[in-house]
Design a protein around this nucleic acid. Structure first.
Lengths: 282, 282
DNA sequence: GAGTGGTCTAGACCACGTA
DNA sequence: ACGTGGTCTAGACCACTCG
């Protein structure tokens, strides 16, 4: 009509909708105009209205919930702090009575307010590693664990320095916040180390690093890598993402004093649900 | 035709194209089938073919270069290692003759092979902070700097604990690899500190942390935050991204011994061009 | 059955860079 | 001039879920 004054129609519609969301005019949980309504109100074809909504979908601002419509998403982020993971140094195993709840909460970095407000099911131990700290109270964190023996993916094989056919014990963990998946993280341990130990137990309470240290494989050094990319379809499904969304892929590799890699953790974090934090000193 | 055996037509086409790229059948720089060719070969409408290509565009696997076609992208990642930044501790300023090239290369974490192979223009100092280390040789790194006084965005204001109307000295830096932007990072310094100092100089050689230390604002602690999201249209343009792509937004805040925030760096990293690395010890 | 998002089609016009 | 991607239209059918 008027040419293209600023950008495409799709983008202008997306912009309007986005503005209403980020400014709080339409609040989390509220329904936004659906494709056919937008089509009429903005005088565009349905495909155009849908393209605009698809932008917000990918940005994680809305979810599609047919046949009810599109709804504004609650996207308060969680803190993800790998440094809070405890890496027992190779000294005699501490015999203190309880490395229990108090220590655990501290290590996870729960603030007082949060520790008080957030209900943590399946045990706080569930989220000990890789250390989710809830940054707003009143939300429910759950964790699930599935342990098995498997052939690790190539990226894990090379980091653990395993042969192609060599298996590993895999501890697959999934964290849910208010019922929605917010993190999957798979811990790979060489079969030669983990075989026959408590590491094979399907128990969220097992502190992998502690056990590794007891087995004589204490980790001195951990290397953290983060890659940022779009979620694969498989990940999108596992994480119940509304679309292919940006994720951070975290690969942590733990090395012993002899520089042997004894543990690889592969975590996938939906981008809009996390803030990754590190602290350093000069 | 056959219903929907696995997924949508668009996704199946995208899958084929993706496979050919990740397996190396079609190599970086090569042209892939264009929309009209795909349309014929796969017996779909042009919109469907385009949707499939749009998937790969968003994944960063291809670029559109009209009127020539779509081309496979070179996406070897760079290392991004915030920890390699030197944070001078508050001790007497070292008077050593040269904190020069050798040290610089070490701090940036260039491997020997890389240091030898990569041509670094505009001076190695240009990439001292926030520490890009080239992970493959033979590529050209450049950096540009633009210094000015501005009102920082809200996220920076709150971290620096500034009033709404309080200005800051902004050092806007942009790094290019082989001519393509790979990083923008803006350093904000309170005007009350930086005003009238060399920090206002439009000089890539200025070591901000060193100068801050000399001015009595040595940083003891730095907090790193990473957020993962889609690029905004402005960022996409500034970074010459082919589409709205996943980016990591890095906010580093430096604190003095008195816990005063004296420096905030906001970096935007295109996701597919970087691996973010941290090292920690037990 | 009605209404939603999800997908696809067939056709059209535009902007833009190369030739 | 031509061919490219970019965008938009108008219409269609589907799967799903709710009442």
């Amino acid at each position: 009509m008027i040419g293209t004054p600023a950008s495409s129609m799709k983008d202008r519609i997306a912009h309007k909708l986005r503005a209403a969301i980020v400014e709080g005019t339409t609040k989390p949980g509220q329904r936004v105009l659906d494709e056919r309504e937008l089509m009429e109100r903005q005088n565009v074809a349905r495909g155009t209205a849908q393209a605009a909504l698809a932008v917000l979908l990918r940005e994680g601002l809305i979810v599609a919930r047919p046949p009810e419509g599109y709804f504004v998403r609650d996207r308060r982020p969680l803190d993800y702090r790998p440094q809070l993971e405890s890496i027992p140094v190779p000294r005699p195993v501490p015999t203190g009575v309880a490395a229990g709840p108090a220590d655990a909460a501290a290590a996870v970095g729960l603030t007082d307010a949060t520790a008080a407000g957030a209900a943590v099911s399946t045990g706080a131990e569930a989220i000990l590693e890789p250390f989710l700290a809830d940054s707003s109270a009143g939300r429910v964190l759950e964790a699930k664990l599935d342990v098995g023996i498997d052939r690790p993916p190539a990226e894990v094989l090379e980091r653990l320095d395993l042969r192609l056919d060599e298996p590993a014990v895999v501890r697959r963990r999934m964290c849910l916040l208010d019922g929605e998946p917010v993190l999957v993280s798979d811990t790979y341990l060489p079969y030669s180390i983990a075989q026959g130990t408590v590491l094979e137990l399907d128990d969220l309470g097992v502190d992998v690093n502690e056990v590794l240290a007891e087995l004589g494989h204490a980790q001195l050094r951990v290397s953290d890598e983060f890659r940022v990319r779009l979620s694969t379809p498989e990940e999108a499904q596992r994480l119940a993402l509304p679309a292919a969304m940006p994720v951070a892929c975290h690969i942590a590799t733990g090395y012993t004093a002899a520089e042997r890699a004894v543990r690889v953790v592969v975590g996938v974090l939906p981008g809009d649900r996390h803030v990754i934090r590190f602290e350093r000193r000069g």
